[in-house]
Structure formats: C-alpha cells, structure tokens
C-alpha cells in the first residue's frame, strides 16, 4: 500500500543548502549588505521623494556590483514604514526633517545571498527614535533567547511578540524570518522561521523584526542573520 500521509520535513531538510554553499562567502555578503545599507542611509536626505531614494539605492547597489537581488530593493519613508513585504508604497512620500525611514535589501553577490534591513531617523522625534532603537533591541533580545535557550523558530517569534508588546509596539508577523543560502534559498524552503519547530542553526536563517506604532503611522524594521555576539560587535 502507498502511504498518502504527508511527510513532515525535518530540520536537515529545511536547512539544506546548494552546492555553492560557503560560510565565508555568506559572511562576506553579509558585511557588504550591512555596508551598503549604511551607505544608502547616509545618502538619504530630508526632502527626497521615496521613489527617488529607491532608484538611488539601486544605483548604489549597482555601483557595488550588487545590482542583482533575490528580492526587490525597499526604501520606505514615513507612513510607508508600516507597509508589509510586497505591499506597494503609498506614492509620492517625501522624507521630512523629523521623520523615519527604513532600508531593506536582499542582494545576490556572485552565488551568495545577502539580506539586511535597518531603520533611521532624520530628527529628534522621541517616538520614532525609540521605535528604530527598539527594532534593533528586540532583534538582539530574540537573538539572545536563541543563544541561551536554544529556542525553536516558533518560540523565537512568540518571544518577539512579547518583547514588542512590552515596549508598546505591534509586531508584524508577515515578516517572520526565513532561510538564507547560496542563491536561491527559495529552492530549499520558502516558509517562515516562525513556523519551524526546531532551533535554527547559525548562519542559515534571517531574523526579521518589523514593529509598528499601535495608532500612529510609522514603524521600524531590522533584520540580519542569526549569529553569535561576536558578529555584532
């Protein structure tokens, strides 16, 4: 008799990589990605139109030989920082002098994928500044939970929800982590980190934290690879 029971993928199934997997190269792309995010952020000025910032970011990535991406380039200004992955931005948003924006890029360099995001403020608005800081702090709190508790993907995002609520934000679970690998990780596992019942291995997963103000039109985003403290010094 042929079994019709679905086969539940194991951790080793979901943590496979391609033949070009190379930890050193993945870490190199990670650094290139973080550097690119900060270069783009430094070039963004109040008064800039979001659409122009996206084009500028693409130009800068092209200059850095990272024009290819496994996902599109996102620069979101002001109210568009509440938008989830894939949602089109409200057009025509101009960055204010006391405003918030985030950058989210997924460049492919040679055969390896990068993925990173971070949030920046242009002024002194305390709520926006705290939001940007909290996205980073929640990221690191969840990462510590992974290191210290060996928590599963589901547990990591339950913990992230608690962390966000304690700080007065809403966590967007549409952005809840994913695999990273030699291009393309999508051929291994396209699902979310928040759905897995095992403790994810280092260097293979991206932890995403997207928080939103419960009533005001802004949010913040931070993402990076799940790695130990040494990589964040």
């Amino acid at each position: 008799m042929i079994s019709t029971q679905p086969v539940t993928p194991t951790q080793s199934d979901l943590e496979k990589s391609g033949s070009a997997f190379d930890a050193e190269q993945l870490l190199k792309v990670r650094q290139m990605t973080r550097d690119a995010i900060h270069r783009i952020a430094q070039a963004i000025r109040p008064g800039m139109l979001e659409e122009d910032a996206v084009e500028m970011a693409k130009d800068m990535l092209a200059d850095a030989n990272m024009v290819r991406g496994w996902h599109d380039v996102y620069v979101r200004f002001g109210p568009n920082t509440t938008k989830t992955f894939g949602a089109p931005s409200e057009p025509g948003i101009v960055l204010g002098s006391d405003d918030i924006f985030f950058i989210d890029i997924g460049p492919v360099w040679k055969q390896w994928e990068g993925d990173g995001g971070d949030t920046f403020v242009t002024g002194s608005n305390p709520g926006m500044r705290r939001c940007a800081d909290d996205a980073r702090q929640i990221f690191h709190a969840v990462r510590q939970y992974w290191i210290e508790q060996g928590a599963t993907g589901k547990e990591l995002y339950n913990f992230a929800c608690q962390q966000a609520e304690q700080r007065g934000w809403k966590l967007n679970l549409d952005l809840s982590g994913h695999r990273i690998a030699d291009f393309p990780h999508a051929s291994v596992y396209e699902g979310a980190l928040a759905d897995v019942d095992f403790s994810p291995s280092r260097l293979l997963w991206v932890l995403e934290i997207h928080i939103r103000h419960p009533s005001e039109p802004y949010g913040a985003f931070f993402e990076d690879l799940l790695l130990e403290d040494d990589y964040f010094i």
């Binding site: 290819r68 991406g69 496994w70 996902h71 599109d72 997924g106 492919v108 291009f183 393309p184 051929s187």
Partner: peptide
C-alpha cells in the same frame, strides 16, 4: 524557470 524575485526585475533568474 524559477523567477525567484517574482517579476521585480531584481534577480535575473
């Protein structure tokens, strides 16, 4: 073909 980026002119696949 794979079409990894979903038609965003990003991945070249």
């Amino acid at each position: 073909m794979q079409g990894i980026c979903g038609g965003q002119k990003s991945c070249g696949s």
